[in-house]
């Protein structure tokens, strides 16, 4: 059992959580804008249903209420590290396929990639606060899928961005949960800690 939080740690966590919530909100609105641009520039149908995309972390979670704080942070961090890799792949593909033709889409993608990286760092900060430390980097990052045709890659990008938008919502909820005083004490965080 970890010792009870010092007031400064509690204050620090609450500050990190509230800044994280704002970051997630900003990220979500930028991802929504990017989605509109992406759909239009890639000639996709905005209403197209995209099946679950392999290698993209799903935002939906069962028993959300029962998750511990550390679990929330770890799942969030793994997801955003994965999105960082996925968005970097999309940016590379976009440059290869379009070159300078659509620099606007490229810039928008790069901007969201920056925000995802910043948010991942923010989560690592919160985990360090738990004196738990973030898992090492190589645990994250999906392999690049084998040969995908261009249309499949376009759909995959759509799936990535849609799921990222969902994650931004979930992350804000997770951070609000973490920031709650009753749950905020580290005992709540550590008891659920699995080895």
């Amino acid at each position: 059992m970890a010792a009870a939080d010092s007031p400064s740690a509690t204050l620090r966590r609450r500050d990190l959580c509230s800044r994280g919530i704002r970051l997630a909100g900003k990220m979500r609105s930028d991802v929504i804008d990017l989605l509109d641009t992406y759909v239009e520039r890639q000639g996709l149908d905005a209403s197209a249903s995209v099946a679950v995309v392999e290698g993209v972390p799903a935002a939906a979670v069962e028993h959300w209420d029962e998750q511990s704080g550390t679990q929330r942070l770890l799942e969030n961090l793994a997801a955003y590290r994965t999105f960082r890799t996925l968005l970097a792949q999309m940016l590379e593909e976009q440059r290869e396929q379009l070159g300078e033709a659509d620099a606007g889409l490229g810039r928008a993608l790069a901007a969201v990639l920056l925000q995802v990286s910043a948010f991942a760092y923010h989560l690592e900060e919160l985990l360090r606060l738990e004196s738990r430390g973030a898992p090492s980097e190589e645990e994250a990052g999906p392999p690049q899928p084998l040969h995908l045709g261009l249309f499949e890659r376009k759909l995959r990008g759509l799936g990535v961005l849609r799921e990222l938008a969902q994650w931004a919502v979930r992350s804000a909820r997770d951070l609000r949960q973490l920031a709650k005083p009753s749950l905020g004490s580290s005992s709540a965080l550590s008891t659920a800690e699995s080895p």
Partner: peptide
């Protein structure tokens, strides 16, 4: 076509489609 090409889509069901560019 525009820069990202014209999509050619074959819809088999709500969630299943094949496509090319």
């Amino acid at each position: 076509s525009n820069a990202s090409g014209t999509n050619v889509v074959c819809r088999l069901s709500e969630y299943e489609m094949h496509g090319t560019v």
